[in-house]
Amino acid sequence: MPDIETEAPAIFRGMLRDVVACSDYTEVCRLLGLVPAGPDVDEIEHYQSHVRIEEFMPVAQEALSHADVAANVLYRLTRLGEGDEEGDERARAMFLFVTRTACSAVIAHLLQNGTLEIGDES
């Protein structure tokens, strides 16, 4: 298990890199008040993000379908007692986006650090 105290900034940057488009990363860092890594570290982190996403791809379809179910569960739980079956489509879309993004990033990081492995499908 990572030492969250010392690895949190690197994990945060990695997660941010995984969920933000490559072309927007530096601007998003600036908007969040973060100082992007220097060019050498930035290049390595950028590459590692692409590797993580590639490692995630074999399980992406199943993981994202489960994330969609989780988003629906969470959305419905937040609307308990409101009686509006149709609900707010914008809020529903935000739950879907956040849940898919979080699941993808977490699974990709767990695969990269070896905590999670994709099993043999045979």
Rank of each mutant, 00 (worst) to 15 (best):
D3R: 07
D3H: 05
E5T: 04
E5P: 05
T6K: 04
E7P: 01
P9F: 02
A10Y: 00
A10S: 07
A10K: 04
A10C: 01
F12Q: 06
G14P: 07
M15G: 10
M15K: 03
M15Y: 12
L16E: 08
L16R: 02
L16I: 09
V19Y: 03
V19C: 11
A21P: 03
C22L: 14
S23W: 12
D24R: 08
D24V: 07
E27P: 08
E27R: 15
E27C: 12
V28L: 14
C29G: 10
R30V: 11
L31I: 13
L31C: 14
L32N: 01
G33R: 06
G33Q: 10
L34T: 01
V35A: 15
P36G: 02
P36H: 01
P36V: 06
A37T: 08
A37F: 04
G38R: 03
G38K: 02
P39F: 09
D40P: 00
D40T: 06
D40I: 11
V41P: 00
V41L: 07
D42L: 10
E43W: 01
E43F: 03
I44E: 08
H46G: 00
Y47R: 05
S49I: 02
S49D: 05
S49R: 00
S49T: 13
S49K: 01
V51R: 03
V51M: 03
R52H: 03
R52W: 06
I53H: 02
I53L: 03
I53T: 02
E54I: 04
E54D: 04
E55P: 04
E55K: 14
F56V: 00
F56Y: 05
M57P: 00
M57Y: 05
P58Y: 09
E62D: 09
A63T: 04
L64H: 11
S65K: 13
S65A: 13
H66C: 05
H66M: 13
A67F: 07
A67T: 05
V69I: 14
V69R: 08
A71K: 00
A71L: 05
N72W: 11
N72Y: 11
L74F: 10
R79C: 08
R79M: 05
L80C: 09
G81A: 00
E82T: 15
G83Y: 00
E86Y: 15
G87L: 08
D88A: 11
E89F: 11
E89K: 13
R90V: 15
R90A: 15
A91D: 15
A93F: 04
A93C: 05
M94A: 12
L96K: 09
F97N: 11
V98F: 08
V98D: 12
R100V: 02
R100C: 01
T101K: 07
T101D: 05
T101I: 01
A102Y: 10
A102L: 15
A102E: 12
C103R: 03
C103G: 09
C103T: 13
S104F: 05
S104W: 01
H109Y: 12
Q112F: 09
Q112G: 06
G114L: 03
L116K: 08
E117Y: 08
E117L: 12
E121S: 06
S122A: 10
